[in-house]
């Protein structure tokens, strides 16, 4: 049985801070597997034996989704903001994901789109997945963008998900997921995070006004 830890990675601090709005864009220091909140049997979603053999730590986050890999080749975008009663949850996905799409577009990334419930795609392939945790008057958004993690590593650690968006069409991880690098885009962490930061800051400002 592989150990599953409670989520306490870098962005956890913003979840518990007193600030009403906050965000953090960060690169993990090593590879982690993060399970969604209601994931009860790790082995259903994760090749646990391989993860254990490779010393990969597994955490369970407070938000939804099945399982995701964080690594130094991914960018994690965490946003905290107050809930507006008139905005439905799926609109928050759209609002935040669109601000990320805007940033990537400004960097020259083409064929970006919103797909599934909360993914960002390049063409028909997934480049970012996101989930939300709502607690009282606060919403936490959590997204992982694949900058250059080899897609084979996703298949190595994660099983085919139990549920999948329509556009996945049964494709395995290798066929379904892509990275900015695979699509021919190479940005520095600073360049990428700075652009996304500007875009999300503008959104938070708009939401607070």
């Amino acid at each position: 049985m592989i150990e599953v830890k409670s989520y306490d990675l870098k962005d956890y601090s913003i979840f518990n801070s007193d600030k009403k709005s906050d965000f953090l864009i960060w690169q993990p220091d090593k590879t982690y597997i993060i399970l969604g909140r209601s994931n009860r049997v790790t082995e259903d979603s994760v090749h646990a034996d391989i993860a254990k053999k490779h010393g990969i730590e597994i955490y369970k986050r407070p938000s939804g989704g099945e399982a995701v890999i964080l690594s130094p080749n991914t960018l994690v975008i965490s946003v905290k903001l107050p809930l507006h009663n008139e905005i439905k949850t799926h609109h928050y996905f759209k609002l935040i994901n669109n601000s990320i799409i805007k940033a990537l577009s400004e960097l020259g990334v083409k064929q970006l789109g919103n797909k599934g419930i909360s993914d960002i795609s390049i063409g028909a392939k997934k480049i970012l997945g996101s989930s939300i945790y709502r607690k009282q008057q606060t919403l936490f958004y959590h997204a992982v963008m694949n900058i250059s993690e080899p897609v084979e590593n996703i298949s190595l650690y994660l099983k085919h998900p139990k549920k999948e968006p329509d556009y996945r069409l049964g494709r395995n991880h290798n066929e379904f997921v892509t990275s900015l690098k695979l699509e021919g885009y190479e940005f520095s962490f600073f360049e990428l995070s700075n652009k996304i930061q500007q875009s999300i800051a503008a959104l938070l400002l708009e939401l607070s006004s």
């Binding site: 969604g36 407070p62 938000s63 996905f93 989930s131 945790y133 709502r134 009282q136």
Partner: peptide, 16 residues
Amino acid sequence: DLLVTMETDKVVAEIP
């Protein structure tokens, strides 16, 4: 007061 934590495909929400 919060009653229950519910999860849909991508969202976890604590329902008051």
